[in-house]
Amino acid sequence: MNGTTVRRLAADHYVWMLLALVCVFFALLSPHFLTAFNIGNVLTQSAFIGLLAIGMTLVILNGEIDLSVGATLALSAALAIGLQNSGWPTSAAIAAGLLAGTALGFINGAVVVASGMHSFVVTLGALIGIRGLVFVYTKGNALLVEDFTYADLLEVHVGPVSLTAIIFLGMLAFFQWLLSASRHGREAYAVGDNPEAARDAGVKVGRHKIINFTISGFLAALCGILLSIRLGTAEPQAGRIWELWTIIAVVLGGTRLQGGVGSLWKTLGGVLVLAVLQNGLRLLNTPNHVELIVMGVILMIALGIDRLMTLLRARERTA
């Protein structure tokens, strides 16, 4: 094992070292940090950004981006609560919320593929427009669930681990399995690394990307539904700039923005780093602004590491 290999391994797994670092840091500073209850808490908190991050990882693996996830989750949450308030059965309302998000994801993907526009522009438009849909539906007001048993849906725990966290980890495991075992998942890497070569080899690149955008929409919707259950309300501004946190988590996890490199396990690392930071800073009673600044700074550091990795990979290719 030579120096390059060591550096490569370090660069590939730095997110776990970062996670260990922040965990040790907060464990030393706060006696409440390393309790089963708090760890369960962190997992629950991480689930929401985490669900978005799964879809975002798939999309970024393809070399695209989805800025619309925050707005989509707000729409699904609003539909889930709004429809049951107007008499729909809970399950139908949830299904409608999931369907709406999935459909929006599909539309994003279809527009990207059909038009050849960069997904940044397409999903930036969607980010503005879907938020508009949320306001159209809610008229700008927070919707409160009338059926109080709705909130009980998630009140299931396995030890300290909440159902929300279990759903997230289940989804993560499922999609990581998809990435490593299915044809679609493996093709994600080929599409992101070299779309032309993939197309020449017979991979249906357009269809592939649409599927990933659709998955991203679905997961955003799922995130919105879980959020609405947990809070019992749907705020029209729910999920604002969550796309930012999501991208931060994915990039922290080492997924390359140009596509072709990344894994969901490492995205989990990125999600956990964010959740631990948030949780730890709150345990220490630091004001909200410190959180924002720390997150931004961590992201810029992650960018530096991302660049370093790109350089290493470039060297690996020419060596």
Binding site: A181, S182, R183, H184, R186, Y189, A190, D193, N194, A197, A198, A201, G202, V203, G260, V261, R313, E316, R317
Partner: peptide
């Protein structure tokens, strides 16, 4: 594609899969 295995690269676009798209 550097992230894929040698086998996956060789057969890119023609991977053997089962009925539900698993490799």
């Amino acid at each position: 594609s550097p992230e894929l295995s040698a086998a996956e690269n060789i057969y890119l676009g023609a991977w053997p899969t089962n009925g539900i798209g698993l490799l």
